[in-house]
Amino acid sequence: MSDARNSILTTLRRTRDAHPLTSPASDFAPIEAKQWAADERLPRIRRLMEAVHTEFLDATEADWPAVLREFLVREGVGSLMYAPATAAGKRLVEGWDAASTTLIPYDRPLEDLKPQLFESIEAGLTTTRGAIAETGSLILWPTADEPRTLSLVPHIHVAILRTDALYDTFLQAMREQGWAQAMPTNVLLVSGPSKTADIEQTLAYGVHGPKRLIVLVVHP
């Protein structure tokens, strides 16, 4: 099929050179102009995400595992999968005393976990790399320790959001975090629980991804 490659590229080059195209300069100012005061970002993120059924929990560095535990007990969530090698994962298991919620480590490849992940685990816990004020979006940065399916397959996704990494726009986040220099296997923006309007424009939540998205805000 490399024939196809060469003939496509040759045609494109020849026809472009016959009629070159000059593009106007890309002026990013209309996006850069979108800014919010530091204390407005979180309320805006919250308002936009709540409008699409995201739920919020407030906590501090000291008490977030306890706030999470209380939530899981209150909602009757029987199992929570977590990333055992991350700092958050280590913090979570310290003195976990909720008998009603079993903690299950994501410590093997997906292939060995599929049935469990799809059929019995109720919730998954991940961290975030911040959030975006313009659209109300969490930045998820899956790693070898914190796999992609943790925020995808369980019915409830709990995401820890620290308030020191709130950006105005998607553009600002990727610039300040230097994404273009080293993209990981997968980056995600997540702006709510899974939803659809494919049946007569009626909004329904929880089609294929998580039915509920809980943002656990960790205030300083």
Binding site: E134, T143, A144, R148, T185, K195
Partner: peptide, 23 residues
């Protein structure tokens, strides 16, 4: 669809790397 952003923006830059558990 008149929504500010879709629920997911998914950016994929490769298959599962050595040591990664899924993908």
């Amino acid at each position: 669809t008149g929504q500010p952003i879709t629920t997911y923006v998914n950016m994929i830059s490769g298959p599962r790397k050595e040591g990664e558990k899924d993908g």
